[in-house]
Design a protein around this nucleic acid. Structure first.
Length: 613
RNA sequence: GCCGCCGUGGCUCAGCUGGCAGAGCGGGUGACUUGUAAUCACCAGGUCGCGGGUUCAAAUCCCGCCGGCGGCUCCA
């Protein structure tokens, strides 16, 4: 809302002609003496809160200038972004009725009027104010503050123990995670390890020219991200999901979507289109649910799974929350939704997707001991399905943090997450699956059952690995743990940008090095720079390259390569092995079995490469 | 969003009781032709995050903004 306040000797206006938005009005105008005139533009997004704040502002000014009379004068020309007429009239009426202790008059809305005003000209006689709505906070975000949680540990044998009574000995990470979830934390003053690594390895960096939480990826980072994206997508498709693609923004006032937004505890980016306002998706739910609502689905098709890799999902997280790759405002997430016909089928799928998530993370290089499991459940669901939860707890054979709610605040009754605990003891969710009991109804998703009746299914939300950026974060943080244990940090071989580096002992062996590079079946590069051997070895090590192959007189004669194997080396002692090209290829095949492969997009010769930072 | 700390060549940082903007790495040029974690020399490179203010004089002091890190809170 825009306000222009003028303290006047008098204000006189004449009502001329109707516009098409005119409210009912009889009369020809008015003249008010000794008055504070409030010219008002009601803007898009203004609501009752704005009106109330405006009331306070106007009263405040009226008191300061010592005016007993106030004239509310609708004046569209203060703003290029006007509210619709109904809202505007509503808000103006609030102003009129809520300004107490003054003599309040109001000029009619939607009429052409002429006016004459005599401004007093003292220092406070002309003021303008802008009043903005508080950023819209969804109901779910508010509710979240009210939730009462009960915390337990679910033991592998299905026994439920209160957190306070659980003996955490031997479960240090679970202790940290439980603490992280339940308590306040103390200050640490270090840059997270992965932020250091993502920059130093030229994987990714902040992009200051974008919003916070939007990242740039250099060639090596993009390669790693692509490989993870492909792998995760491949796993979901193998699991039986159909890949689709849906828009990244939606009408903010679409009734169905709006109600769902209200149920999700996240803040949205808002964008204005020509006529409508849009929000950026925070997940693929919107597009996929709308698609499913328009589909004809038979019980024979169930469980039915659709999948999308969201590049991107947007969440306008609070600024203080954003860190490196751990939490972003734009992120890439595998998002699979499964339609099932009843709770029994839902639980069956839930367990399968739980197992799938374990497998996917394991193949990526994140083992069950690297994360902690959390289960969030309503009391009712828990009481009715104890055996099922016991089965879940048994699968990994480790205790699980269980959060129980008296009533259902969200759209789901059951959810699990795998939480990675990083080098600063921070926990972040990776894989998650939820059983959604609300949205099929809300979106009008139906299936036709055996009896020919249309029925409402249940929906599972599954992010099989969690956000791809967060997977990268976890891998880098894991590398930090390797360092702390005295090992050399590295990425899994299939994700290492350069898998093999060939280093000629001197320029004489450069051609030979290039020749060898052609025969290696991996992402290979050749250090052809005019540097000492020591320098080249050091640089390759700093890049975490899994295999460094040196070639010189000896190697040429023996027809072998002298290969330094990073995973078996440490800072004190390097593991060096004489290997034939075929032996090296065989080893690489084993390292990367079942994983996608993409060539390195950087020039093969190091001398041709720019430095991105 | 709120609170605290931080912001100097491409990178890492020194300079900060106000007084000529520095180093190492990286880059360019030349020498060297190297056997497993940094070869040597020379050269180029800076609106000291941005905008105001105080002062004869500001990287240095003050205010505002932007960005980063940590905390509150929450998630993928």
């Amino acid at each position: 809302m825009k306000l222009l306040l003028i303290h006047a000797d008098y204000m006189e206006y004449e009502v001329k002609e109707k516009t098409k938005f005119a409210e009912d009005y009889q009369g020809t105008g008015d003249r008010v003496e000794e008055v504070l005139v409030a010219f008002v533009s009601v803007e898009k997004g203004d609501n009752e809160d704005v009106a109330k704040k405006a009331v306070e502002e106007i009263k405040d000014v009226a008191e300061k200038v010592g005016s007993k009379r106030i004239l509310i004068y609708p004046y569209a020309h203060l703003s290029p972004n006007l509210a619709d007429p109904e809202t505007a009239i509503k808000i103006l009426k609030i102003l009129e009725s809520e300004i107490k202790d003054f003599e309040v008059k109001r000029a009619p809305f939607g009429w052409y009027k002429s006016f004459r005003i005599s401004c007093k000209g003292h220092p406070l006689s002309e003021l303008s104010r802008e009043i903005k709505a508080e950023e819209e906070v969804t109901k779910a975000l508010k509710d979240e503050k009210e939730i009462v949680s009960f915390w337990f540990i679910l033991k592998p044998d299905g026994e439920l123990v209160k957190v306070k009574e659980f003996n955490f000995e031997g479960y240090e990470n679970l202790r940290k995670f439980a603490k992280y979830e339940m308590e306040k934390r103390r200050a640490v003053d270090t840059i997270p390890a992965h932020v250091e690594f993502m920059k130093r390895l030229e994987l990714a960096d902040y992009e200051g020219a974008s919003d916070s939480g939007h990242i740039r990826y250099y060639p090596k980072g993009r390669l790693i991200k692509s490989l993870l994206e492909r792998f995760v997508t491949q796993k979901c498709i193998e699991y039986g999901a159909m890949e689709v693609e849906t828009p990244i923004m939606y009408d903010r006032n679409h009734p169905t979507l709006r109600r769902y937004l209200e149920r999700f505890p996240a803040r949205q980016y808002i964008l204005s289109g020509d006529k409508r306002e849009f929000f950026m998706r925070f997940a693929a739910c919107f597009g996929q649910f709308l698609m499913l609502a328009d589909s004809t689905i038979s019980y024979r098709n169930l469980p039915l799974r659709i999948y999308e890799l969201t590049r991107y999902s947007f969440r306008k997280e609070q600024r203080g929350e954003l860190v490196g790759l751990r939490r972003l405002r734009a992120f890439t997430m595998p998002d699979m939704h499964t339609i099932v016909k009843d709770m029994e089928q839902a639980m069956e799928e839930f367990l399968k997707q739980y197992k799938l998530s374990v497998e996917v993370l394991k193949e990526i290089g994140i083992e069950p001991e690297d994360y902690e499991v959390a289960i969030r459940v309503t009391k009712d669901f828990y009481e009715q399905n104890k055996d099922f939860l016991k089965k879940i707890a048994g699968f990994l054979g480790k205790p699980i943090l269980l959060e129980m709610w008296d009533s259902r605040f969200f759209y789901f009754v059951l959810k699990f997450e795998f939480n990675f605990v990083d080098s600063l003891d921070k926990a972040s969710a990776l894989s998650t699956v939820q059983i959604d009991v609300e949205n099929a109804e809300r979106y009008g998703i139906k299936y036709v059952d055996v009896d020919g009746e249309k029925k409402t299914p249940l929906i599972l939300h599954c992010s099989v690995s969690g956000a791809i950026e967060r997977v990268m974060y976890a891998l880098l943080e894991k590398a930090k743990f390797m360092m702390d244990r005295g090992k050399l940090p590295m990425l899994p071989v299939w994700l290492s940008p350069t898998q093999v580096r060939i280093i000629p002992v001197s320029e004489r062996f450069l051609d030979k090095a290039k020749e060898v590079a052609e025969k290696i079946e991996a992402r290979v590069d050749v250090d052809d720079r005019d540097e000492t051997l020591n320098k080249k070895i050091r640089d390759a090590s700093m890049e975490w390259i899994p295999y460094i192959a040196v070639i010189g007189e000896k190697e040429v004669q023996e027809g072998k390569l002298s290969v330094t194997i990073r995973s078996e080396s440490d800072l004190k002692e390097q593991k060096r092995v004489m290997m034939s090209i075929e032996e090296l290829n065989e080893r690489l095949r084993r390292d990367c079995e079942g994983k996608p492969f993409m060539p390195l997009t950087l020039p093969k010769l190091l001398s041709l490469r720019p430095s991105f930072r």
